[in-house]
Amino acid sequence: MNWWDDALHRATAEVVLAGALGGLIGVQVVLRRLSFFTMALTHATFPGVVAASIIGVNIMLGGVVAGAVVALGVAALTRRRGQDAAAATGVLLSAGFALGAALVATQSGFSRDLSSFLVGSILTVSPQDLLTTALVLAVVALVLLAGARPLTQIAFDRAGAQASGVSLGAWDIVLLLTIEVVVVTLVPAVGTILALSLIVAPAAAARLWSDRLAVITALAVLFGIGSGVAGLWVSTQWNVAAGASISLTATGILLVSWMGTRLRMRAGLKRVPA
């Protein structure tokens, strides 16, 4: 029997890829404080996915189109910083969610679709889905590598980056669209809530261990993969939803990291002579 024929093997491969993808983009999301935007994206791509499945075109395409509209909308809105951006993100979130739910409700048997939208269906991942995730991972890694310098410059010092000739608008759009592609890739497999969790929690945990971006990124990828595999194992052992157990594992890693840094800080304080 082919190794890939086993649903659990495919699921394992998918969580490894998804964990790496989430950890990679998560560093940018955490540094730029884009968690709420990511959450809004997970909900806003929903109507695109549903509409695509109703018309019968590729689901991913529907998600990408809907997400791109939202990402560009947010990019336009965040040019004016302040309350309006946060509120507009919230409005997009509500609108996307409501629209998607309304579309789903017109179809029969919709509660199953809705709950798989929330918690994903990792055990039904097809070889084709795996290929897509791997491809997206490669592309995202390339984009982030190529843009590492300007993205870091902008994240650290927007005004200075602009003065040195970096195009803020173009790079903001590149980043938001990259996040969007990751979200669209992750949601069908692992669900909205877990997508957010896999993006934010490993990167936030990694941030606690180091002040160096390269180390943070490597750790985030490691934590993402680790929580994916461990969470999947827990899910098969105790028969709980995989999305939820992976998300809780990622949270656990963050908690341990947080306590670890508290202890390190306390030890560091003690070493300082009084």
């Binding site: 994240a155 650290f156 200075g160 003065a163 040195s164 180091s210 002040d211 160096r212 971006l213």
Partner: peptide
């Protein structure tokens, strides 16, 4: 002049928690 002129911003516009040496 962007990129040819140097610009030193005010420090309070920066994220003090940013992980950078």
């Amino acid at each position: 002049a962007r990129g040819r002129a140097g610009y030193v911003p005010q420090t309070d516009s920066l994220d003090a928690d940013f992980p950078i040496s």
